[in-house]
Amino acid sequence: MATGGSSIYKGSDLIHDLSCSKCEENDLNTEAQHFCPECEHHLCNKCVKIHEEYFKKHAVYGRGDLHKWATFSMDRCDQHGKELEVLCDDHQELCCSVCVSLNHRLCKSISHLPDRAKGFHEKAEFRQLSAAVDKMRNRLDEMKKAGRKDQAKLKDSYKKIVAEIKFLRKEIDAILDQIEKATIEQLDNMIGDLEKDVNDDVVKCVKMNDQLKNMMEKINQMIGKRKETNAYIGYRKCTAKLTQADNLIGT
């Protein structure tokens, strides 16, 4: 398939991927560089200037916007914009001259459309087309309505789930607040008890330290005065106090 501004030679004829619609009306073969979706015309550089003078408000797209050239024309090739001329019987495809040159040159059977169309509108398959289209359109409408309902249900489900999540979040927050409060209260009580125990030990240490100091001072005084009995008593009391101190430190 030719792309962009390319063209293909077939014998002495120059075949463009898209030809200017206005030039074709005058039996001229000019490559299209622009497209007007409102007129459904492909235009060359010369014809687009004339078009813009008459239709200043029409949006015209150049080759840089080929994806915007798509349009629907009953007798035009969707791919190349040229007039449909034949039917490829091998592939059952409607073709323009470019289609034939590019994709169907080796096909065995190609029919001229006017020949294939003779009397076709009288055939049952053509007469049944309108009913088949209406039936399909009704099915599509039903599918669309069902899709709309599904969309509405999805939105409702989403809202309900979000509301449940938020409600659950509030319940979890409340439970966490209670746990936090109870834990802090337990911690306060535990720290208070520990501080009291530590403080009691500190007081005991200070008191026992002072007692041992005083005892040793008195014992030393007794030895100097040779009061053996009192010295012995002091020794017994002092060793007992040391045992108490050792037990205190050991705990």
Rank of each mutant, 00 (worst) to 15 (best):
V48T: 02
L94Q: 03
K213I: 00
C88D: 03
K227H: 09
Y158N: 06
D65Q: 08
R116M: 03
H112S: 00
H80L: 00
K225Q: 09
V98N: 05
A2M: 07
A2I: 11
R169M: 04
C107D: 13
I161T: 14
L212I: 12
K237L: 14
C238P: 06
R105M: 15
A70V: 07
Q186N: 12
T183L: 08
K204C: 10
L113I: 07
I179C: 14
D78E: 11
N138W: 08
V98K: 02
P114T: 00
S157K: 12
Y54I: 06
D89H: 05
T239N: 01
H34V: 00
V133N: 01
F126C: 05
G234W: 09
T3K: 12
C44A: 05
I110N: 06
M215E: 12
M222C: 11
G62N: 02
N26H: 07
Q92K: 12
S73H: 00
A32R: 01
M1P: 11
I223C: 05
K108W: 01
L212H: 08
E164S: 11
K145G: 02
D177R: 10
E40G: 02
N209R: 14
E171Y: 01
I8P: 00
E180M: 07
K207Y: 11
D75M: 07
D246I: 15
C36F: 10
T251H: 14
L87H: 06
A245E: 12
V60R: 01
C47H: 15
A124F: 04
K22W: 10
L187R: 14
L194C: 12
T30G: 05
H104M: 03
K170F: 05
A182H: 12
V48C: 00
I249H: 02
A2D: 01
E53T: 14
C39T: 01
A2V: 12
E24R: 13
K155P: 02
D27I: 03
I219G: 06
S19Y: 08
Q33K: 15
L194T: 14
D150L: 14
C44L: 06
L168P: 03
M143T: 12
H34T: 01
E24F: 07
G119T: 02
S97T: 03
K160W: 04
S157V: 05
D197T: 13
K153N: 11
K123R: 07
L187C: 12
E217K: 12
N199Y: 10
K166G: 00
Y158W: 01
A231S: 04
A231H: 01
N29F: 08
L248I: 07
A182N: 15
K237N: 15
I110D: 06
W69N: 03
K68W: 02
Q92V: 04
I172E: 03
S21P: 02
L66M: 07
G250V: 00
N209D: 10
I233R: 13
L248W: 14
L87G: 02
C88G: 02
